[in-house]
Nucleic acid binder design. Structure first.
Length: 515
RNA sequence: AGCGGGGUAGAGCAGUGGCAGCUCGUUGGGCUCAUAAUCCAAAGGUCGCAGGUUCGAAUCCUGCCCCCGCAACCA
């Protein structure tokens, strides 16, 4: 089975922030899980680099836009690398292959008469050098320049977005174009049914930093129209509608809720216009607040990805972000709570369990499997179900239930008290080690380095599941070599609280999640 | 009345008509294999506010308040 998953292509007007990291980590977890299942996975990440905002930002920093984009895109790449993200490609909308495919597409749409010349009328703020929507204005004035924008008309090209409204609604209702969670589907259907989609102006005369329109080079292409195609050019599509790459369509496109609208209007309309299959599923997740406040640079309460990586390490960062609140909802985080969770789940939970079992097992023990551990089987069953439903928070809960079960089991059996019944001791430790072995596989998509460390300490190699092998407890095959225990360093070093630092961190802040 | 989501213990959340729950934190006790870890127990809540329906409401209805996202040609 193929599994093609995408993150949004992030807009490079700013440094990568926690929201970008969150989506990308989730995508990586799902990618790694599908690889574990032996699916043929393609994981796309990338950056969106054209448009007025970039042009202006580059100008502020006195750089040419390409250099500016190169630097920012590198920051994203480096962060993904540091977070152990296993994306198969990193597509940039300034890549040559993207630009040339996009130009072909626009020509096709033009030849199909789905693009026509017209006149765009909008409220233009001279100070901002851009059109404003009514909702961006405060009392009719630009909030930045305190001036009334002028009503300006401009020749431009339109895409017949309105033609596709009905078809999009139909595809969503028939679940041929799935949107999850259900609230987001309702939201999309809400605005699609209620508001009329106007034709979309796709050309920009004033924006220089963009891909030229193939049939009229005095314009560049509006970013949203071209950027979406990176989901296709990233898998090496050349712009030929008859030659669609095998990985198409995406099985899953992850994104935050702010870009739901464009992904359920412009994006499917463009694909329908070209007779290309729609993505199978969009999954929309929520936003963070920090101590109940929006993150914002102005308020200075931003938690940066590197703050977490430096403090907790890569694996713990991946875990902590996903273990905070259900994937798909909004949630609140704080440094204080992250620290608590780090200590309770990782240090006291997983780390401590591995340490206490291995200490006993390292002394004196011979492995034999009873081959049928109900707890492990039950956990795998729920694990697979929640993973399938993209309930990553629930998956982690289920895995941690098994950890808790092991702690209680030890308390009940008290293996450290057994002095003259080696058979019983071996059985108890074997049960525990099999559970830890399975735990290590379960956490592999979430915390690949920790997983590897556990295998090393168990003296066992995990080489993945074989093709078509059921993912579940199979001790005889996989553990035939037995355990060669060598307890190592603790998996997670304890964090000791520093109340003063925490208090400083908790000062109100806000963060901006625009992509 | 623009659309969607949310407001439940100190914190984060679950609970859609039948004794108000989970995790963390806090407090007390047990244990000693383990990173002051772990196990058992306890304390802690006018379920946003105000009305209504019902034998019975966190849950259903009405009104209101607060928070988040969207309200496209910014991305």
């Amino acid at each position: 089975m193929k599994f093609y998953i995408t993150t949004p292509i992030y807009y490079v007007n700013d440094e990568p922030h926690l929201g970008h990291a969150y989506t990308t980590i989730a995508a990586d977890v799902l990618s790694r899980y599908h690889r574990l299942k032996n699916d043929d996975v393609f994981f796309l990440a990338g950056t969106d680099e054209h448009g007025l905002k970039i042009e202006q930002k580059a100008q502020e920093e006195e750089k040419n836009p390409q250099k500016f984009c190169d630097e920012k895109a590198t920051k994203f790449k480096v962060l993904w690398n540091n977070l152990n993200i296993t994306n198969n490609t990193f597509i940039r909308t300034t890549d040559l292959k993207h630009k040339s495919a996009v130009q072909k597409i626009l020509q096709i749409l033009f030849d199909k008469k789905l693009i026509y010349k017209g006149e765009y009328e909008g409220l233009y703020c001279v100070g901002c050098e851009e059109y404003k929507t009514k909702t961006q204005l405060i009392a009719g004035k630009c909030p930045l320049h305190k001036k009334m924008p002028e009503l300006v008309k401009e020749d431009c090209y339109f895409f017949q977005l309105s033609n596709f409204q009905k078809k999009i609604i139909e595809k969503i209702q028939k679940n041929e174009f799935k949107i999850e969670p259900i609230e987001r589907k309702n939201e999309a259907l809400g605005f699609l049914k209620k508001e009329k989609l106007e034709d979309l102006s796709i050309s920009r005369k004033k924006v220089k930093w963009g891909i030229p329109l193939p049939f009229d080079k005095s314009y560049t292409i509006y970013v949203w129209v071209e950027a979406f195609f990176s989901y296709l050019t990233g898998i090496d599509w050349q712009g030929d509608c008859k030659k669609i790459p095998n990985f198409w369509p995406p099985d899953l496109q992850l994104m935050a809720k702010d870009i739901l609208r464009v992904h359920t209007t412009i994006w499917p309309a463009l694909l329908l216009a070209l007779d290309i299959l729609l993505p199978n599923k969009l999954f929309v997740h929520g936003f963070f607040t920090i101590n109940g406040q929006k993150m914002s640079k102005t308020l200075g309460n931003v938690i940066l990805p590197y703050d977490l990586i430096n403090k907790f390490g890569v694996d713990a960062t991946r875990y902590l972000l996903l273990a905070q609140f259900p994937f798909g909802q909004d949630g609140d985080i704080s440094m204080e709570r992250l620290e608590e969770k780090y200590n309770s789940d990782l240090v006291n939970g997983l780390g401590n369990l591995v340490a206490r079992v291995l200490t006993l097992a390292e002394r004196n023990f011979t492995y034999f499997s009873n081959g049928n551990d109900i707890e492990i089987k039950k956990t795998w069953k729920e694990y697979k179900k929640t993973m399938k439903n993209i309930q990553l928070f629930e998956t982690l809960k289920i895995v941690w239930n098994l950890i808790s079960f092991c702690d209680k089991y030890m308390e009940k059996e008290k293996p450290w008290e057994i002095k003259d019944n080696p058979e019983r001791l071996n059985k108890i430790l074997s049960n525990l080690l099999e559970r830890i072995y399975n735990l290590a596989i379960m956490i592999l998509p979430f915390m690949p380095e920790t997983s590897e460390k556990i295998f090393t300490q168990l003296g066992i190699k995990f080489e993945g599941f074989k093709k078509n092998e059921q993912i579940e407890f199979i001790p005889h095959q996989n553990l035939v070599q037995g355990f060669k225990i060598k307890k190592g360093e603790n998996l997670f070093p304890r964090k000791h609280k520093n109340k003063k630092t925490l208090k400083q961190k908790n000062t109100k802040i806000i963060l901006d999640f625009k992509f």
